[in-house]
């Protein structure tokens, strides 16, 4: 028996389609590996080496200050439209708006506040970090740091990581307040639901709060690390900075959505 005529390994349609799928997968896998490596290094430097607390405070101020108005606007409008839509539908189908506020509060904690806030932070802060760090890379300042015995991760990433994590949690709490108040406003003005009826915490469980914290924490870790990683992998002048900034916001957004999915599922199965 003779072997069938061999096709050159890299040209058959089968291997081409495998390459088409495998290529991106490998790339994604490589990126993920680099991101996790950066996370481990960041945590290592955080716990084993002195932290530049002044830089942390500076970064925290930058992040918090610059995002406050942004988060307020976004969550305000979101709260208004959510209540508007839900109340309208609820009136038609259920007819009773008693529990509107209570359910809204639950949903805020579980889902909308941490996730939308994180997406907004990814937009505002993620691009900011990637742009800053990316510019430093392409102007060789990161190399200069290394030459002067300062590790870029300890010097640049750790302060942003700590500040980002803290601020994400804080802003998420702030988001709950803003969004709820906006919804309360709409419910009161357009649907005659008094604020006292609307402000109803009876349905809130510990599970909701735990889910909230889990998500805020996860997002707060993901966004700075992914953005810093995007920034540090910049190359090639101003194009590189633009590419790094884009990569940061895309990767952060995907990560947030994916983590949301995972954590929502987890909460559903284990907490409720």
């Amino acid at each position: 028996m003779s072997a069938p005529a061999a096709q050159t390994p890299s040209s058959g349609p089968m291997s081409r389609s495998l390459a088409a799928v495998g290529g991106p997968l490998l790339m994604i896998g490589g990126e993920l590996r680099d991101i996790f490596r950066m996370l481990f290094l960041t945590l290592y430097y955080l716990f084993r080496k002195p932290v530049r607390w002044r830089a942390v405070v500076e970064q925290g101020y930058e992040i918090g200050n610059r995002s406050l108005v942004f988060v307020t606007l976004v969550l305000g409008f979101l709260g208004m439209i959510l209540i508007y839509q839900s109340a309208y539908q609820a009136q038609q189908i259920v007819g009773d708006l008693q529990l509107l506020g209570a359910l809204f509060l639950q949903l805020l904690f579980r889902e909308f506040a941490p996730t939308i806030t994180a997406l907004m932070i990814a937009t505002r802060v993620g691009t900011g970090i990637a742009a800053e760090v990316g510019s430093m890379v392409v102007t060789e300042q990161v190399d200069a740091l290394r030459m002067n015995n300062a590790d870029p991760i300890q010097y640049l990433v750790v302060p942003r990581f700590v500040a980002g994590l803290v601020m994400t949690v804080v802003l998420s709490v702030f988001a709950v307040v803003v969004c709820f108040l906006a919804g309360m406003f709409v419910a009161d003005r357009l649907f005659d639901v008094s604020p006292t009826t609307f402000f109803n915490t009876t349905l809130l469980t510990w599970g909701d709060l735990i889910a909230f914290l889990m998500k805020a924490f996860a997002y707060g870790i993901a966004v700075p690390v992914i953005s810093a990683h995007a920034g540090l992998s910049a190359f090639g002048g101003s194009e590189g900075v633009g590419a790094a900034t884009t990569k940061a916001v895309v990767n952060c957004s995907l990560a947030v959505v994916f983590l949301d999915f995972l954590l929502s599922g987890f909460a559903f199965v284990f907490l409720f």
Partner: peptide, 16 residues
């Protein structure tokens, strides 16, 4: 080792 080396970068690389 780098304590013994000084480097002048092409694009200055000053910390802005």
């Amino acid at each position: 080792l780098r304590l013994n080396i000084g480097m002048l970068f092409q694009n200055y690389a000053l910390f802005d």
